[in-house]
Amino acid sequence: MSTVEIDRNKVGGQGNNPDLPVNGRTRPAITAAGLLQLAARIGGQVVVGLIVFLIAFPSLFVIYLSFSEKSFFTFPITAFSLKWYQNALSGQFLESIFASSILALTSAIMACVIGTMCAYALNRYRFWGSGLLTNFFLAPLALPQIVLAIGYLILITRLRSFTGVNLTGTLPGLLIAHVLVTTPWVIRTVSAVLLQTDRAIEDAAQSLGASPRRTFFAVTLPAISPGIVGGFVFAFIISFGNFELSLMVSQPSFEPLPIRIYHYLTEKSDPGVAAVSALVVVFVAMATWIIDRLIGLQKIL
């Protein structure tokens, strides 16, 4: 507050500038307005800070809890330790981290291939239904997940009784479900980059003698690769964190981490959960930062 006043005084005090209004007359008004503005700004920053804290609170709190020394949660923590990280990185949790990683990795790769193909087709070959088709491919993002989950469960159960193909509780069964919900993210990311890529570079490549296939691999693919990498990271973390579909389909033999945590919590709750959660939080925050570096998150979200 005082700094602003000083600044104003300085400007007014120099007084040599004939364009400036007469100092004595304008100063009170400026100060009052400045005070009000400053108050509004500080108030605004506090409000924004509080809201952002609300959003970030669970992620931060879970990290705090993970350093507890006791075998139950207390607040505040009196004795800190890293022993729960040992617990998080062994036994069932490690198994599930492993399961989730495999699931996320394979579904992200598949989503990238399928999603990039779809995004390219939908953006480069426009026809009367392509807008509708784009919406169709993005639909899994905008429907209550539980509905999709129960439908998928019934579908694969029926599939088993009719064809003998068993997808329930298996990696392929989970994989298909996850590709279904991660592909839209890849389509969106790649589309965003495709829209920014000058189509003329493809024409240029063709005018220089590159066949359409060659053009795609030599020019288009490198140009949209940030989008594909971004889509991959997105697909990975979406799959890694998916809950509803995994809950319906998975079985104890192959249980993704969120489901393991959920089931663990129904039995007991100790800082082991917090430790494994903290690992996920740190990992996701890093991945988010990477995507932002790669393509700029604002373009996709």
Binding site: S59, V62, N242, I261, V284
Partner: peptide
């Protein structure tokens, strides 16, 4: 946005 990608279980647990 990063909480967006952290599983709901973890956040609800917190």
């Amino acid at each position: 946005i990063s909480p967006l990608f952290i599983s709901g279980v973890i956040r609800a647990f917190a």
